[in-house]
Design a protein around this nucleic acid. Structure first.
Length: 283
DNA sequence: CTTTCAGCCTGGGCGC
DNA sequence: TGCGCCCAGGCTGAAA
């Protein structure tokens, strides 16, 4: 699914659910996910759950030892906490979790982490997701700057853009520069900046660079506030389902009226990914 | 350095 | 009902 706001939503939701729980065993159901020494995690307890780039990270500890389990959800990965009550696991369909499109199916269950009080399940229909185990935080850190962190400033953005070659839209998707922006938010951010997706990244004026910084932060924060974007009409009772799709201005709206000038929005393909924009507002 | 393309996977939706 | 085709929020690696 997920870009930064969706992953942040998942991490925030899981953190209180998982905190302090001790891991007893792991069952890997998809051979693609074998590899890490999963059994070495037995007996470790979860300290916290957080987001790094587009990854969910679980920090485990046992005594002075630390382990970091990073989960890249890619397109369809989901992490769901399934509590145990009176010896029975809850129905995952009814569990508090981030929803999108596809209902949870047992067919896409790829891994189970058995913890005190229940289990954490990894579902992944398309099997693009990646689980990794690290013994230090440097292992999972993405190379790019966190757009909501202290290192992302108008000046640092200007520095990254200086001399940049390619088009701005694909540039925004590069995780080694800014970590966490994906296809949806890249289009939304450029629309807010009135910058055309085909503009050369290095050609942005100082004012446009400032706008790019400002709107990137603003839109990501706003999306987090609405628990991200889901293409699902299902809204769960906890309100933890993303609702930012209501606020998308251009993504997926090819042919519809631009919210600013009312002329039709367009879709183009850049590096095999759709970009949505207003040909009249964005230059 | 850049861009392009195939590939990794599954399944929904569409036109016929 | 079925088939073929296109689509999908991510990312890597090879090739040009």
């Amino acid at each position: 699914m997920p870009e930064l706001p969706e992953v942040e939503t998942v991490a925030r939701q899981l953190d209180p659910q998982l905190r302090g729980r001790r891991l007893s065993s792991i069952e890997i159901l998809d051979a693609k996910l074998a590899g890490p020494d999963w059994d070495s995690l037995r007996g470790f307890s979860i300290q916290r759950t957080f987001r790094g780039g587009k990854q969910v990270v679980l920090e485990f500890s046992r005594g002075k030892l630390s382990r970091f389990l990073s989960v890249h959800l890619r397109m369809t990965g989901r992490l769901i906490w399934v509590p145990e009550l009176k010896g029975r696991l809850a129905d995952p369909q009814a569990c508090d979790h981030y929803q999108y499109k596809v209902p949870i199916s047992d067919k896409s269950l790829r891994a189970r982490f058995r913890l005190s009080g229940g289990e954490l399940r990894f579902y992944d229909q398309r099997r693009f997701g990646v689980l990794a185990l690290h013994s230090d935080p440097a292992g999972f850190a993405s190379a790019g700057v966190e757009p909501l962190g202290p290192d992302f400033s108008p000046a640092s953005l200007a520095g990254m853009l200086a001399g940049a070659r390619g088009e701005i839209k694909p540039w925004l998707l590069r995780q080694d520069r800014i970590a966490g922006i994906g296809n949806i938010y890249a289009s939304e951010i450029l629309f807010a900046c009135a910058v055309h997706p085909r503009r050369s990244a290095g050609s942005l004026s100082p004012a446009e660079q400032k706008d790019l910084h400002r709107h990137t932060v603003r839109i990501l924060k706003l999306a987090i506030k609405h628990c991200g974007t889901t293409f699902s009409d299902f809204q769960d009772s906890t309100g933890s389902t993303g609702s930012f799709q209501q606020y998308l201005k251009v993504y997926g709206r090819e042919g519809q009226a631009c919210p600013v000038c009312a002329r039709p929005l367009e879709r183009i393909v850049q590096q095999q990914r759709s970009s949505f924009y207003c040909p009249d507002c964005q230059h």
